[in-house]
Design a protein around this nucleic acid. Structure first.
Lengths: 108, 108
DNA sequence: TTACGCAGTTACTAAAAGGTAACTACTTTA
DNA sequence: TAAAGTAGTTACCTTTTAGTAACTGCGTAA
């Protein structure tokens, strides 16, 4: 009877549909490898706590890599995994469409 | 200095990234016009309260239409607007990719 | 006559999520 | 010697959110 359900989609959406999450992914997608502080500045308004939570969750789900270098001060970088990069196209489409709907005067 | 921010994308994501929201949109996209009860059964596990909240919000944002017919019992139908239908492609892409990642044994 | 279905709404409660601020360790600056 | 900066982490508290259950009014089915 269930003719149009999609459990995988539900699972994926649970992983990426939290507040900030897709915007973080889009930021990583357009900027490539980024350090924590850099991301924090780009994703304007996010608190370090929430940013850490999102990054940890995305790492656990295999969507981003985390590179830790124990220099002083420590450098931690984040990057989309191959899977993460597959989100690039739908994110780009959403961004394009959002720019058409709401204008892109603040973009780029 | 802000070289890769996208306010329109942030705005759009705020509208569609709540729990259930994109799954509701995907369900409407694949089923066409749907009544409240039908949607409720497809979006398994959602409570009527939350479904109402999401539908109202999506209507306010111009993403879905709400048709009310005061028959007895009343018939209320929902459908994607032209804007809503623009979300179809990214949603389809996400669904396809989710099926590849997590398997589609429970789908269709 | 009683129950059920539609399409919600409302009140109440429980859980999760978010922000703020303080804290880590270490180096550089004053 | 002490303060400040980097890159986060943690504790605490408040706010938001979600779920449950009961209720609406009207008609049909049992």
């Amino acid at each position: 009877m269930k003719d149009s359900e999609c459990a995988p989609l539900e699972k994926l959406l649970n992983q990426i549909s939290g507040q900030w999450t897709m915007y973080i992914l889009w930021t990583l997608d357009t900027n490539g490898v980024m350090r924590f502080g850099e991301l924090r500045r780009k994703v304007d308004g996010i608190s370090p706590k929430v940013l850490t939570q999102r990054l940890r969750m995305l790492e656990e789900n295999g969507i981003i890599y985390r590179y830790y270098e124990s220099t002083i001060p420590p450098q931690v970088s984040y990057e989309l995994t191959e899977r993460g990069k597959e989100l690039s196209k739908p994110l780009y489409d959403l961004c394009e469409l959002a720019s058409r709907w709401y204008g892109d005067e603040t973009k780029m």
